[in-house]
């Protein structure tokens, strides 16, 4: 039974125009047509969206959680990237 597994697809839904598609789960389907159909049935039974993307799960490249520190820690130490790092006199007003 392990042969011929039905491929996995990741499902992204746009809740309404103006918002980005957001990952909401996955479905198994033989092809993209059936994947869209399954995603509609499984993830939009109560008006959750106006548009669906399905992407083969195998097509996603993910960062390794083991490298979380070296990947993302440097951002935390660069406080000068944030506006609050810079002191502007109150008299100048909102900037």
């Amino acid at each position: 039974m392990t042969k011929n597994q039905i491929p996995l697809w990741e499902v992204f839904i746009r809740p309404r125009n103006g918002l980005a598609h957001k990952h909401c789960g996955s479905v198994h389907a033989a092809d993209e047509v059936m994947a869209l159909q399954a995603a509609r049935d499984v993830y939009t039974r109560r008006g959750e969206g106006t548009s669906i993307w399905v992407v083969p799960s195998a097509a996603i490249t993910a960062s390794d959680p083991e490298n979380k520190d070296e990947n993302f820690e440097p951002a935390l130490t660069k406080v000068y990237r944030h506006p609050t790092f810079y002191e502007i006199p109150d008299e100048v007003g909102h900037m």
Binding site: M1, T2, Q5, G25, S26, V27, D41, V42, R45
Partner: peptide, 24 residues
């Protein structure tokens, strides 16, 4: 009944993230 089927599918997907297949 359709919701129950959907709930089963959300849950199978969650289990699959742990490395077990739907077929298993």
């Amino acid at each position: 009944v359709q919701d129950e089927g959907g709930h089963g599918l959300y849950l199978y997907s969650a289990a699959e993230t742990l490395g077990v297949s739907r077929e298993e």
